[in-house]
Simulated scan of single mutants.
Amino acid sequence: MTVAVEGGSDKTQRGAGPRPGPRPGPISRFRQSYNRNWYAWAMVAPVVAVIGALVLYPLARGIYLSLTDANSSNVGKTIGVNEIPDSFSWVGFDNYTEILSGGDHQFWPHFTWTIVWTVVCVALHYGIGMSLALLLNRKLRGRTFYRMVLILPWAVPTFVTVFAWRLILADDGGILNMALEWAHLPTPPWLSEPFWQRIAAITVNTWVGVPFMMVSLLGGLQSIPSEQYEAAEVDGATPWQRFRHVTLPGLRSVSSTVVLLGTIWTFNQFVVIFLLFGATGAPEAQILVTWAYRLGFGQDPRDYAGSAAYGVIILSMLIVFASFYRRWLARNEKAV
């Protein structure tokens, strides 16, 4: 009897084992992580501080202002020794409702033009960039010189490029119109009529953006093994078939990245529109980001709340687009 009891007691003790203690809370886990990786936190801290000061705070401030009726007449300011406090009011989502419902009569026309501008520019960037990359990937005399010349528009500062194009496209005395007049051809008003202003904006942005696309695609082309082309040629594939079944699949990862970056950059391409037409010129050629700037800094009184609401809407659209685009690419990759 005693042995059975001792055996049962011993068995019970062996089966029970030590009881797990309570799980540490988030503060304890953070403290443990900090103690183990304090040097990493020290390295990251300056970056976090800079991002917080230059990105997170302005973003939070912009979201807050978009929910008010703030403008240049009711925002607090300091004049000499006198401080005027803020007098704007909280209006909630009224600014978003007015913008998205078409109450300001500006958002949807500029949104439509921004979509057209982005699609046309990115398509031209990719198409011309791909053509030049295929040309420079071939063995031809003076290839290094051609590469240097074609990269120059990307190397030159954008403001210099745009001002040069303003001289070329000027309605009176512009180099292009003088050449067209000499050839007895019509001279379009590139910088004064809405249709030609949009054509001029697309032309300048294409000139600025093609070199980046060309260099990126050229790097992708050079990473494709030459054996694949040789095998396709032995199998009797035509140049188009080699391009379709070897080149395009080999550039899939590069193309997806550059198209996403090109779309985001073009959608927010402030510099070309602003420098080509000025802060208050060409209202029909303004894209969403330049129109938001015009609301906040190009009129009197300055509509800080409306400009901030435009900024939040633009950011939201780009986040949604990038999310759906990445999911679409992931599905295609899985299917392939």
Rank of each mutant, 00 (worst) to 15 (best):
T187D: 00
W190A: 07
S192N: 11
S192Y: 07
W196F: 09
W196Y: 04
Q197N: 14
A200D: 05
N205W: 08
T206H: 07
T206W: 03
W207S: 00
V210G: 00
P211H: 08
F212I: 07
S216Y: 10
L217E: 00
L221W: 04
Q222A: 08
Q222P: 01
I224S: 01
P225M: 03
S226K: 10
E230M: 11
A231S: 06
A232R: 11
V234D: 07
D235L: 04
G236S: 13
A237Q: 01
A237C: 05
W240Q: 03
R244P: 00
R244C: 01
H245D: 05
V246I: 05
T247N: 04
L248A: 15
L248D: 15
L248M: 13
P249A: 04
P249D: 02
P249I: 04
S253I: 15
S253Q: 14
S253H: 14
S255Y: 09
T257P: 00
V258P: 01
V259E: 05
V259R: 00
L260G: 03
L260Q: 05
L261Y: 13
T263V: 13
I264A: 02
W265K: 13
Q269N: 15
Q269L: 13
F270Q: 08
V271H: 05
V272P: 02
L275M: 10
F277N: 00
G281V: 04
G281T: 14
A282Q: 09
Q286D: 08
I287V: 13
I287S: 00
T290H: 03
T290V: 10
W291Q: 09
Y293S: 11
L295S: 07
G296C: 10
Q299H: 10
D300E: 15
P301G: 11
D303P: 02
A305S: 10
A305L: 10
A305F: 07
G306P: 05
G306E: 12
A308H: 01
A308F: 01
Y310T: 02
G311K: 03
G311C: 09
